[in-house]
Computed example of a mutant assay.
Amino acid sequence: MSEAIYHHLVPRTYLKSWCHHGYSAHAYKSEGEKFKNGVNVSSHFGYNHYHSLRVGMSYLNEEDLSQIFKELSNFQVKYEGRNLEGLKEWNEKFFDRENWELIYPNGKLVPKKRRNALFQSIEHAALPVIEMGWSIKYENKWNKLLRIIEQKVLVEEEDTEIPEFYKGFIMKMIVSIGWRSERSREIYTEVLNQIDNVVNLSQIVIDRKDNLLPFGNNVLDVIRHEYLLKEYRNFLNETGVIYMEAKEYIRRCSLTFFVATGECRFITSDNPSFIRSDSNFKVPTMPVSPQVLVEVGVDREKRGTYQIRRIDDIMVKQYNKIILDNSERMVLSLSPDLEIMGL
């Protein structure tokens, strides 16, 4: 499998349903202004190497570090008058690599030019563990899941309930896509903002040469990104907070599918899986395709069924307003005219 350089936060396989030609889609800024030529979803909704594991990250395991530092496997590293012991310490001190001395096995000092070339190789190392995990476990299975959802949901001609199917996988997709968007989960974003209000981490700028992130330039961005990558990896290994959230959804909740029955279709956005407020409740919501939207609700009766609700253009437009309000910067629509979608 070839390594992807551009990593989508919102999966391209998911976005494809809103494309009118190939991977081209009608796109609008969250304020309503249209992108004149639309967007190609292959090159939007992501960053280069967003999910890659890089040198300096705090939670890398021994196998990660051995791959990142493989160019130095036969060298001795001296820093501040002593030898650095082990890959973990190399990783912790790499930020001050300009003050390292590299020593060949024969005891000779590595020339500065050669040393810098080795450092550059380490800086460029990007392990695709998470990106490949997303692809294998989730993204490559989305199209099959979408076909099954549409086959089971669109065939119904009135409001009804049907037996549950693929509940675990659907819940994991809803939860993980919510965490993968730039907003991530609301409570995590709120906690980071509260911390930043106290210690102003966003005001601590990282020197450009030391910033290996594909975006951002401050300490808050680094902390946020590293934590998310740690939890993405945990999720793929079926542990951590994202996985536990999904397990709670599976255990306590069920799904309602809303089907657009008129001319109006659902839009989607760069934050497609979000939690909307409904009176005193928080309702996880995600458009599945232009004709289907899903919500997660508490399953008090434990009937083992999903609800199907067929809705008219008025309700679809109401949902589209909610999707727009929860977007970050961009929405996609099958229609070249947002007014048709009620916006």
Rank of each mutant, 00 (worst) to 15 (best):
H7D: 08
L15N: 04
W18Q: 04
S30N: 11
S30R: 15
E31N: 15
K34I: 14
F35N: 11
V39G: 03
V41L: 01
S43D: 10
F45I: 11
F45L: 12
F45M: 10
N48R: 15
H49K: 09
M57V: 12
N61T: 05
L65T: 05
S66V: 00
F69S: 00
E71H: 12
N74V: 04
F75K: 15
F75T: 04
Q76R: 07
N83W: 13
L84C: 08
E85S: 03
E89I: 12
K93D: 03
F94T: 05
Y104E: 15
K108D: 11
V110N: 06
R114Y: 15
H124K: 13
E139F: 01
K141V: 03
N143Y: 01
R147F: 02
R147S: 03
I148D: 05
I148F: 09
I148C: 05
E150W: 10
K152H: 13
L154I: 06
F165E: 10
F169L: 14
F169C: 11
I170W: 03
M173L: 11
V175G: 04
S176D: 00
E182S: 09
I187L: 12
Y188K: 13
E190L: 13
V191N: 04
V191S: 10
I195M: 10
N200K: 15
L201N: 11
Q203D: 10
V205C: 02
V205N: 12
V205S: 09
D207S: 06
K209Q: 13
L213P: 07
N217T: 02
R224P: 06
Y227C: 05
Y227I: 15
Y227P: 00
L228G: 09
L228S: 12
L229E: 07
L229Y: 13
K230C: 02
L236W: 03
E238W: 03
V241F: 09
I242S: 00
I242H: 06
Y243F: 15
A246L: 13
K247F: 01
K247I: 00
E248Y: 09
R252G: 00
S269C: 01
N271L: 06
N271T: 14
R276P: 02
R276N: 12
K282P: 00
P287W: 08
V288N: 00
V292D: 01
V296W: 04
V296Y: 07
G297D: 08
R300Y: 13
Y306D: 05
I308C: 11
R310A: 01
I311M: 07
Q318E: 13
K321D: 06
K321G: 02
K321Q: 14
K321R: 15
I323A: 09
S327M: 02
V331W: 05
S335Q: 12
E339P: 01
E339H: 14
I340M: 02
